[in-house]
Structures are given as C-alpha cells and as structure tokens.
Amino acid sequence: MARRIMIIEDDRTIQQQLKALLESYRYEVVTTDDFATVVEDIIKENPDLVLLDLNLPFYDGYHVCRELRRQSRVPLIIVTSRDSEMDELMSMNLGADHFVTKPYNTGILIAKIAALLERAYGGSEARVVRHADLSLDLGMGTASFKGKTTELTRNESRILQLLIENEGRITSRDEIMNALWQTDAFVDDNTLTVNINRLRKKLATIDAGAFIKTRRGQGYLL
C-alpha cells in the first residue's frame, strides 16, 4: 500500500506539479482547495504525511500547525517561501518535523519525505523496487535476479534505483550525477563511468547484465 501524502498549498501550479512529482515516486497524493476548514480536512483524510505551506488563505500555516498538533501527531513538513530564522523557529516550536524553503531542491524534499515516513512508520515497505524480474533491496543494498543476488555499493544502488524509477525513459548522465550529489557523493564524470561499469559487471554475475542499455550522447535506459 502506497503512503498517502496530503499537500496543503494554495498555488495551483505548485500543488499540481508537486502532486505529479510525488505520484511519480509512487505516493498517493491528496490535495485540497478549500482552506477554510483545512484542519478538519486533514483529520478527515488522515494522511501519512502532510506538506504544509505557510501562506494560506483564511488561516496562516502557523495556526493550522498549532491546531493540527492538538489533535494529531501526523508527520508534518512545512514548505514555504518565508525563510527567516524566525519562521523556522516558529515552525519547529509549533511541532513541524521539517522546514523546507521554496524553491526547494526536489531531491532533498523527496529524501526528507522518505526519511520522515520511515521514521514514523518503520522501513518495512517500499524498500524494494522492481523492474521485471530484477529487484533492488534498498535496505540491504542488494540486487536480485531469478534467485541470484549480488551486493551493491551505495552509489551503485542509487544509480540502479534511479534507472528503475525512470524505467522506459532515458536517464541522462547529468541526472544520475545530480542524484548522487544529493546523497553527498560528489562524483565526477570519470567516477560515474567507473560506477556504471562496475554496476553492469555485478549485474552480469546474476545474469542481468543486459538490462542497462546505453544511449550514446543521451544517457542510460532500463
């Protein structure tokens, strides 16, 4: 069962694009356009996590935050364009779990959501991603194909995860590098080539070597 995330955001573009982004990461997303009863709506929807904007019509985010915390311990990330220290402190004091400023780095936002969900509900699920018979266990850092298993390094595992998430689409080298950088691995072009070659070799040992295809000058495809 996919985790349900509720987006409380009055800017339609952001609301819809954030929804699309999160859905591409296989989350179920709920939104609302009625901000007069927002706290009641959150309670009623009972999501696994709430993304809350601070500048809202009717009530500001602080009010929503305070009211929500009286009734619920749902994981809460504040997403806002106000970025003063005061706003961050206020948010934390009112019980938000994270404070992310616009325009956010989506990689970081996704990582924070995943980490928060894992902390709140345990990492039992969504830790394995699959492409056909190839499966990647993110918790163990192992790839398996038809009963055979191989161990992957953190970078290799991240690369394979990204390719599986983008299955059927070309993933550019820059995109892969960007994803690795977001996990504090500041790899350069050569290192990436080495990482990908090693990943391919390891996949070959479990007879899954043919999965990653190269599109010259464009990137990789699974």
Binding site: Q17, A20, P103, Y104
Partner: peptide
Amino acid sequence: TPIAGMKL
C-alpha cells in the same frame, strides 16, 4: 512561489 512552480 512561481520559481518553485517552474522548477517542479
């Protein structure tokens, strides 16, 4: 806000 929208 619009920059965040465009980035997404």
